[in-house]
Computed example of a mutant assay.
Amino acid sequence: MKNKAAPQVSIIVLNWNGWEDTVECLESIYQIKYPNYEILVVDNASQDDSIPKIKQYAQGLVTVESGFFEYNSLNKPLEVFEFPEKEYLNPENIKTDLNPIPSDKKLILLLNNENHGYAKGNNLAMNFVLDKLDSDYILVLNNDTVVHENLLLEMVNAAEEDVNIGCVTPKVYYYDYKGRRDVISHAGETFNLYIGRGKRFCKDQVDDGQCDQSRPVDTIEGCSILFKREVLEKVGLFDPLYFAYWEDTDLCFRIRENGYKLLYVPQARIWHKIGVSWDSYFSYFVIYHYLVRNRLIFMWRFASRLQKTTFSIFFIFYLLANIILMLLKEDLETSKEGLRAISDGINDFRI
């Protein structure tokens, strides 16, 4: 870092029935070139053997094979600090001082008693960090990602340049796009409230330097967001009303409404296994939470009256097209999910 000690970063990785992705993600983090971080895995009551496998990884008993790095056994075993939800919700009861232990020698496990979803699951971990740890930044990172060794160095350096920067996003590549690793998934996004849709820069393009300029953006994808501590303390965390999807967009808008900037930093890079948590794009869960209900909640919250009007016209045609598509596939249940989500999206916003 520039003439001062590196700010401390807490990295939160949410796991739910995905230990193989999680340990690959963890191994990539433990190989980063940054001197002051800690890793927290928050588990949403996984029903597989995630916790035993993650512990075995920490002991050095599970090696990780990846095309992105060579497994490093030299920092194993890791010292594991395990806290069930009832315990870590009251950080004052935790007497262990977690801060002095070296970054690459410890792993904090937070064990939730149920599947709280993306929003609340990450919130519980972020509250633990804010209450118990001395971190200057919190990085929320999907477990189905692999990070470049310079990720934190580039993101923190960029965030430190301007007090008005609230959060930072890296350049996100597809983990595997038809055998390629240089295809961009996300390089920041603009968002149009008149139609309720975002437009990603350089999406699905082979990286040839066309998105190598840092820029302010409207929204940041939730797979990797670096937040300043004071911003979260002022603005708040994810809204658990969403459960999963659109909570990241909601928080980005609240951060911007409070006068902060969102910054895309192309020198920081990750690779994302897009959609591994979806059974299929048109699964009931995605139709219900992502395409319909949560989009409506977000739009009702942030759009002006004119924007709501234009969005409603656009969305009706968009939704009908998807329902017709499902009917053509003789998928009546998914079509019903879409219609039910309209009602819930409007009613839930009133909560």
Score class of each variant (00 low, 15 high):
residue 3 N to L: 10
residue 4 K to D: 08
residue 4 K to V: 03
residue 5 A to R: 14
residue 5 A to T: 14
residue 8 Q to A: 14
residue 9 V to P: 08
residue 11 I to A: 11
residue 11 I to M: 11
residue 12 I to S: 13
residue 13 V to Q: 11
residue 14 L to M: 09
residue 16 W to Q: 10
residue 27 E to H: 07
residue 29 I to R: 06
residue 30 Y to S: 07
residue 34 Y to T: 12
residue 43 D to Q: 07
residue 44 N to G: 01
residue 45 A to E: 07
residue 48 D to P: 04
residue 51 I to L: 15
residue 60 G to E: 01
residue 62 V to T: 10
residue 64 V to M: 03
residue 65 E to P: 00
residue 65 E to N: 01
residue 66 S to H: 01
residue 70 E to C: 00
residue 74 L to Y: 15
residue 76 K to V: 09
residue 80 V to N: 13
residue 81 F to V: 10
residue 85 E to Q: 10
residue 86 K to V: 15
residue 86 K to I: 13
residue 92 E to H: 03
residue 99 N to M: 07
residue 103 S to V: 06
residue 105 K to I: 09
residue 108 I to S: 05
residue 109 L to E: 04
residue 112 N to T: 05
residue 119 A to M: 01
residue 130 L to E: 00
residue 132 K to Q: 02
residue 132 K to A: 04
residue 137 Y to M: 03
residue 143 N to A: 07
residue 151 L to D: 08
residue 157 N to D: 13
residue 169 T to V: 15
residue 170 P to Q: 07
residue 175 Y to A: 02
residue 177 Y to H: 02
residue 179 G to Q: 04
residue 179 G to M: 05
residue 187 A to I: 00
residue 191 F to A: 00
residue 191 F to Y: 00
residue 195 I to V: 09
residue 198 G to E: 01
residue 199 K to I: 12
residue 211 C to T: 03
residue 216 P to K: 13
residue 216 P to D: 13
residue 216 P to R: 09
residue 220 I to W: 07
residue 223 C to I: 15
residue 224 S to L: 07
residue 241 L to P: 06
residue 244 A to H: 11
residue 245 Y to W: 14
residue 249 T to P: 08
residue 254 R to F: 00
residue 254 R to W: 02
residue 255 I to E: 12
residue 256 R to D: 02
residue 261 K to V: 05
residue 261 K to G: 05
residue 269 R to V: 09
residue 270 I to M: 09
residue 272 H to W: 00
residue 275 G to L: 08
residue 278 W to F: 09
residue 280 S to A: 05
residue 282 F to Q: 06
residue 287 I to F: 05
residue 289 H to R: 13
residue 296 L to R: 12
residue 304 S to L: 01
residue 304 S to K: 01
residue 304 S to P: 00
residue 313 I to T: 14
residue 320 L to F: 14
residue 324 I to C: 05
residue 329 K to Q: 05
residue 332 L to H: 09
residue 335 S to W: 02
residue 339 L to M: 15
residue 345 G to Q: 09
residue 347 N to V: 10
